[in-house]
Design a protein around this nucleic acid. Structure first.
Lengths: 197, 197
DNA sequence: ATTTTTGATAGACTTTTATATATCAGAAAA
DNA sequence: TTTTCTGATATATAAAAGTCTATCAAAAAT
């Protein structure tokens, strides 16, 4: 297709993948058939403005007309935003992995405690979400609380607090955008307002 | 039409008007019939991405997908750019008006000099162009030279130098984008790379 | 190993853009 | 005033987008 439109459709696809959405779930959210999204990303069709805007919004993107002389600046801003979100996602993944390792390293009797079991469930479930910078901060809190517990394994109240915070975080995410935030098979990142709407 | 696309088509129209292009001349440059542009600006049609990109580029604009959280920053950048270009155009208009007044205030015999006549022609012709920040700087030079002449009206060489610079500026503009840069009836501004392409 | 998910692709059909060409009223310029 | 220019609008036609529905191979999860 027209080479001029390629950058747009490509960054549309990149955004979708960053958010870990499949063509089907994105289509469901935006009200567009999966087949159409496929053709758009492949550059087979010359999509209409309304479709473009619709898809962009679903991906937390806004279409803007930027003066030639300013494109470099804007692109730098966008790249920086992407970078930060990717870093957040990576950081979150790292913390979650660490938490899981900590739990698995616990003695058997402690591991069978209901609090610990629940905590483990939350950890595993959260690994399937795409986490933002805000979420990362909360995860770091949880990690700190867990450190307390690590220092004094007899006291289960710390673990309880960690479990509570974790469940709150997970439920907030689930409420937020519904099941659509669930990531696909590959490592998925998120691209949206880290700086307060 | 879909309310979601309105901001885009509106800023397209705004950009065209800033550049002082008629729907017809823009259409000629972008290879699109005037009737189509009218319908686009009126929001009657849901134009295709390729058309959008084509029109945008003709207007020195680039289509970009900006993360929600960053739209405010980007919009500030765009507004600032617009503002600077509008200021340039206003400044240029002011200088040209001043030059014309200066010439008309000259004694009849000096006014009939060929150099002065030519200079006056350039001034009047340039008033029909949309001038950028770069052009403004050159105009300021001319204005300074004219001040020399004002101080010593017997010495026509200063006027000659002013005339030369003026013609160079005009021809550069004419070469640049062809007759399409000629402004419409209303005060017209320009929106493009003030900072070296 | 089996089930599920993902992206690509196809056919039939409707809706819409986009083009070419004209016309027209109102604003601006001569 | 008269001419020129601008934007809105109409019609007919060709060329696509967009939807619905389904299928399919490969990758991934169980």
């Amino acid at each position: 297709m027209s080479y001029a439109t390629e950058p747009v459709t490509l960054s549309l696809k990149a955004a979708r993948e960053r958010k870990g959405l499949s063509q089907r779930t994105l289509g469901a959210q935006a009200g567009v058939p999966q087949s159409h999204i496929s053709r758009i990303e492949k550059g087979v069709v010359d999509l209409r403005l309304s479709s473009l805007v619709e898809l962009a919004r679903t991906l937390d993107l806004e279409l803007m007309l930027v003066p030639r002389g300013k494109t470099a600046v804007v692109q730098a801003i966008i790249r920086d935003d992407d970078q930060r979100n990717i870093q957040s996602a990576r950081g979150a993944a790292k913390i979650l992995q660490h938490l899981e390792n900590q739990i698995e390293a616990l003695p058997g009797d402690v591991q069978s405690e209901i609090v610990i079991q629940k905590l483990q469930r939350w950890v595993r479930e959260l690994m399937h979400f795409n986490l933002s910078a805000d979420d990362l901060v909360q995860l770091q809190d949880v990690s700190a609380v867990m450190q307390e517990f690590q220092n004094d394994p007899c006291n289960l109240s710390a673990a309880g607090r960690a479990e509570t915070r974790m469940s709150v975080l997970r439920n907030a995410l689930a409420d937020d955008v519904g099941a659509s935030v669930m990531s696909g098979p590959r490592p998925a990142y998120r691209l949206d307002g880290d700086d307060h709407g």
